[in-house]
């Protein structure tokens, strides 16, 4: 699996309701020590309910400038949330979604928890 298999993919809950799209993948360097850095563990998916992608991550940072770019982008991405990787029940196969009518989506487990996406 590669990161592009997850990015921009729709996200559904266990009942089939669309929650948004995966706009980024969050990693934490807390895995087993490697040669120089710790392994980068996939911590979760950043999901935006309104847009398929994110621009500069304003919705995840405390940056307020340049005005009005930052406030507009923050408003545009309102409602974005982080869902932890263990709450992901299903990831689409890379070949899914290639044709018209294909419905590839990341499906979350029942009772998943949404977190603030801020860094």
């Amino acid at each position: 699996m590669i990161a592009s298999d997850l990015l921009d993919v729709p996200v559904h809950d266990d009942a089939g309701a669309q929650l948004g799209w995966v706009v980024d993948l969050r990693f934490v360097l807390d895995g087993a020590p490697d040669a120089y850095l710790a392994r980068a563990r996939l911590h979760g998916l950043v999901v935006s309910p309104r847009t398929r992608t994110s621009f500069m991550g304003f919705e995840r940072s405390s940056v307020r400038h340049p005005w009005p770019v930052a406030p507009i982008l923050r408003w545009w991405h309102r409602g974005a949330f982080l869902v932890h990787w263990p709450d992901v029940a299903r990831v689409p196969h890379p070949d899914e979604g290639a044709g018209p009518g294909d419905d590839a989506a990341v499906v979350l487990r029942a009772g998943y928890t949404a977190y603030e996406p801020g860094l």
Binding site: Q18, F27, T113
Partner: peptide, 23 residues
């Protein structure tokens, strides 16, 4: 979903450096 706004809790502090793939 109707409101598009999912209730969100605060993210626990992580023990290592946090990186977002695209950022």
């Amino acid at each position: 979903t109707g409101s598009r706004d999912v209730p969100r809790g605060p993210e626990p502090r992580q023990p290592g450096r946090v990186l977002d793939a695209r950022l």
